[in-house]
Simulated scan of single mutants.
Amino acid sequence: MTLQQLHERLLSWATAEPRKDDVLAARHAHFGGYGEPHEEDRTYEVRLNGMLDFYLYEWRSPGGQTSIERFLEAEGPSLSAEDVAQYQDLAKNVHGLFEVRKIKEGQIRVRDVFGGGDYDVTERRQVAGLEKGDVLEARLLPFDGTLFFSGAFLYHPREARKAILSEVKRLKKAAGKGGTPDIPAFLALLSRMALKLERYRNVRLEAIYDFSPDTRTMTPPGGLRPLGPR
């Protein structure tokens, strides 16, 4: 199967009627941290894809398994050995915050800003506006010996790069040697900031991507109203 076919079969199984309650639970958990998108939001589709990725690869059922683990348990006997191996690779996907290091035809090199590792991602599409130094949240899917972006990469504005990387440095220092920062919580915070910037065009970027302790979780004052997509 192709990567798209693997994804579609997994998604079809995971969202079938017997697992509708699981989808709702994962949606509630994900959007509770990332912010609930509206259909008119520019990044609505990307954010919906992010929720589905979370449901497939990270959210755990009451039994403690991820959706892809349950899928392999249920459907594994009907799959070829090659397909099982491909799904097992997909389960090892990498989700995080990345900085673009190099762009060339058909490939983008990104660096995990927390872990420091570099990844070469196959990307045959021309990604409009993407430049070296850009910061984005993404999920890297292993397939056939290479990596691909899922459909859930979320860009952060170039003007916020310095503030974001400074906060990453602070979090790593606060975690101490051998410690691990709460990366999922930071990704959720950044997502809420990006959504707020998208909706509140009359609020300065610096006032939204503000990582000082007293403003980190604040929402815009009640008098502000969304002015539509940026």
Results as ranks from 00 to 15, higher is better:
Val203Trp: 07
Gly32Leu: 10
Trp13Pro: 00
Lys162Leu: 12
Glu73Arg: 09
Glu159Arg: 05
Glu105Thr: 15
Gly64Asp: 02
Pro221Gln: 08
Asp120Ala: 08
Tyr119Ser: 02
Lys92Gln: 11
Gly35Arg: 02
Ser212Phe: 04
Leu141Thr: 06
Ile108Leu: 03
Ala128Ile: 11
Pro184Gln: 01
Phe153Arg: 05
Gly116Phe: 10
Ile68Ser: 06
Asp22Asn: 13
Gly151Glu: 02
Asp210Tyr: 01
Ser166Met: 09
Pro213Gly: 09
Pro226Ser: 15
Trp13Ala: 10
Gly178Glu: 13
Glu99Gly: 09
Asn49Lys: 03
Ser212Lys: 08
Pro220Phe: 03
Leu205Pro: 00
Gln65Thr: 11
Gly116Glu: 14
Glu8Thr: 15
Tyr34Gly: 01
Tyr200Pro: 04
Ser67Val: 05
Gly35Val: 04
Leu189Arg: 09
Leu24Cys: 10
Gly64Arg: 04
Gln126Pro: 05
Asp112Gln: 10
Leu97Val: 02
Leu130Met: 09
Phe153Trp: 10
Leu10Gln: 13
Arg124Pro: 01
Phe98Ile: 08
Gln86Ile: 06
Leu52Ala: 06
Ser78Leu: 05
Thr146Lys: 06
Ile108Trp: 02
Ser212Gln: 11
Leu6Ser: 04
Leu11Gly: 01
Thr122Val: 11
Arg101Phe: 14
Val121Gly: 06
Leu130Pro: 06
Glu82Lys: 07
Glu8Ile: 13
Gly50Gln: 02
Arg60Thr: 13
Thr146Glu: 13
Ala14Trp: 04
Ala194Arg: 11
Glu75Gln: 03
Tyr155Phe: 14
Leu10Lys: 13
Leu130Glu: 03
Leu56Gly: 08
Tyr155Lys: 13
Glu131Pro: 09
Asp41Glu: 12
Ala188Cys: 13
Lys173Met: 12
Ala160His: 02
Asp112Trp: 13
Gly179Thr: 05
Leu171Ile: 12
Arg216Asp: 04
Ser166Ile: 12
Ala25Arg: 08
Gln107Pro: 06
Arg230Trp: 01
Val121Ile: 15
Tyr87Cys: 02
Lys102Val: 01
Asp21Thr: 12
Phe143Asn: 12
His7Gln: 12
Gly133His: 02
Arg60Met: 07
Tyr57Phe: 13
Pro18Ser: 15
Asp214Ala: 14
Trp59Cys: 00
Pro37Asn: 04
His95Ala: 10
Asp21Val: 15
Ala91Phe: 00
Leu3Pro: 01
Arg139Ser: 05
Asp21Pro: 12
Arg111Met: 13
Leu187Arg: 09
Leu141His: 07
Pro184Tyr: 00
Gln88Lys: 15
Arg125Phe: 15
Pro157Asp: 03
Thr122Met: 03
Val84Phe: 05
Asn202Glu: 10
Leu147Val: 08
Gly63Asp: 09
Lys132Ser: 02
His28Cys: 12
His30Arg: 14
Pro18Asp: 12
Ile103Asp: 01
Phe31Gln: 15
Glu40Ile: 14
Phe149Ile: 01
Glu69Ser: 11
Ser78Met: 04
Asp182Lys: 15
Ala138Cys: 10
Pro220Ala: 07
Leu227Ser: 11
Pro229Gln: 09
